[in-house]
Amino acid sequence: MNCYLCERDMPLQANWRSLFLNDLEEVICSRCRSSFERLEKGCRICGGLGTDICSDCSKWETTAYAGVIDSGKSLFRYNPAMKEYLHQYKFLKDIVLAEVFAPVLREELRSQKAVIVPIPMNENKLKERTFPQVDRLLDAASLPYVYYLGKNEVRLGGKSKADRIASEDVFWWNGKPVPEKVLLFDDLYTTGSTMRMAAKALKAEGVKEITILALIRA
């Protein structure tokens, strides 16, 4: 097969592990794989740069959103290769690219005890995009997930950070009884407002512990 990203022919990488352990198939070549940068130990809430807790998160901890996220991490840096990937996946809508990070996500979340909750999309936005990009990442990794939240239409772009924080009730609870432990999953963590608002909405309904995972930390 050809690499999903650079279209170069890839040698088949069959080995005993892939035969017997039913591992997910690599859909990109090793060269493209190495162009993405994994984030190592960082902030204990968002995985961003910093020891213990980053400056962004410490600011959040002085707001009404303090303590809504118990722990978390992000997997990759938002480097040029990742920018290009996200552009092709989200904006060119190349849905098969959901499979690119399936092996990594599966490895990360397969033994997860908390219930995985993807950050939902607003209905109109979903129609426009034609596919829920966060859910598809989890689907590709064969990971189960549950919705407890819906999202109202908000135009985040152009608003200042203060406005974003002020826009309460972006997420609403869908009425389903919530579990004790939740892992909130999103594709891209930028300012943290999306995760904070979603976490707050869930905690208001009685979730005890919330961990977050973002594929990418901008």
């Binding site: 097969m1 849905i95 129609k127 426009e128 995009r129 034609t130 596919f131």
Partner: peptide
């Protein structure tokens, strides 16, 4: 078939 991909379309 490698290039014409099926998906569930939300539109």
């Amino acid at each position: 078939p490698q290039k014409i991909i099926s998906f569930f379309c939300s539109a």
